[in-house]
């Protein structure tokens, strides 16, 4: 592969950026939306893996810059799959019983437009980031 011009280089850059996107996001974690999917046994049994993949693809498709990562059991095993959504500058919100439709709604309304969606579980724990 030869880079024949600056435009060529920029094209390659666009192609390869996906490879390091996760790390770029990590560097700017406090500035972008984070979605944590509870991925303990209970979550996986209820389809958390599929939800996580779906969200990654959907966000990517819409061009929304967000970090989708997994987390442990949040203690709401009755409501799995559960996800935590953190919009910068706002308190984290946890949703229960997330299926693909719900996930799509969360992305469309909560993440893109900033409107809360039904299905919030009141948060009673603190994250360990301190």
């Amino acid at each position: 592969m030869k880079v024949k011009s600056l435009a060529d280089l920029k094209k390659i850059k666009a192609e390869v950026q996906g490879k390091i996107k996760l790390r770029e996001q990590g560097e700017n974690a406090d500035k972008i939306v984070q979605i944590k999917v509870a991925m303990a046994t209970c979550g996986i049994a209820s389809g958390a893996k599929e939800i996580m993949s779906y969200m990654i693809d959907e966000l990517d498709f819409r061009g929304v810059d967000a970090i989708v990562s997994q987390t442990g059991c949040m203690g709401y095993c009755y409501a799995e799959p559960t996800i935590e959504v953190i919009v910068p500058g706002q308190s984290p919100v946890v949703y229960g019983f997330v299926n693909k439709e719900k996930a799509k709604e969360i992305i469309e309304k909560h993440i893109v437009k900033g409107e809360l969606v039904d299905g919030i579980i009141p948060v009673t724990f603190k994250t360990i980031d301190e």
Partner: peptide, 20 residues
């Protein structure tokens, strides 16, 4: 941050754009 043995990762981080 990058894999130093992979030029694509450097290009992804604006690499060689300054030269260009």
């Amino acid at each position: 941050f990058v894999d130093p043995e992979n030029i694509d990762e450097y290009i992804g981080r604006d690499g060689y754009e300054a030269l260009g």
